[in-house]
């Protein structure tokens, strides 16, 4: 028996730490890591609710698996972009890559 709020607090904590990382880190790789933290927080929730609701088709767990897969794809592309930026700009500090500004 596990109290659900415990699991959810854990997940909320992971998510908030991830948000902090995304907002405060300059290094693009570290930002990607923080995003992984946030994705994991979501996965914890999915699995927990899958157990809470006792869904017969295990939708929560299957979704967690999909999220992991998509996260893998995202990291692959993200890192490729990071390396490309590094090759062009000699830096992967996000605040120095501000071409979004007109």
């Amino acid at each position: 028996m596990i109290r659900l709020p415990l699991v959810l607090f854990f997940s909320a904590g992971l998510f908030s730490v991830g948000v902090y990382g995304v907002l405060a880190r300059r290094n693009a790789v570290l930002v990607l890591m923080s995003i992984e933290l946030m994705l994991n927080a979501v996965n914890v929730n999915l699995v927990a609710f899958s157990q809470l609701l006792r869904d017969t088709i295990l939708a929560g767990q299957v979704f967690a698996l999909f999220v992991i897969t998509v996260a893998a794809a995202e990291v692959g592309i993200g890192l490729a972009i990071v390396i490309l930026i590094y090759r062009n700009r000699e830096t992967i500090n996000i605040d120095e890559v501000n071409l979004l500004k007109w």
């Binding site: 998510f15 948000v19 902090y20 907002l23 405060a24 880190r25």
Partner: peptide, 24 residues
């Protein structure tokens, strides 16, 4: 490794945590 907005980032993160905790 960190940028200049650590303070506000921490505030935002805590705000999200507080909001989620309240909802939970």
């Amino acid at each position: 490794l960190d940028n200049q907005q650590r303070g506000i980032s921490a505030l935002v993160a805590l705000g999200i945590l507080a909001g989620l905790a309240f909802l939970i």
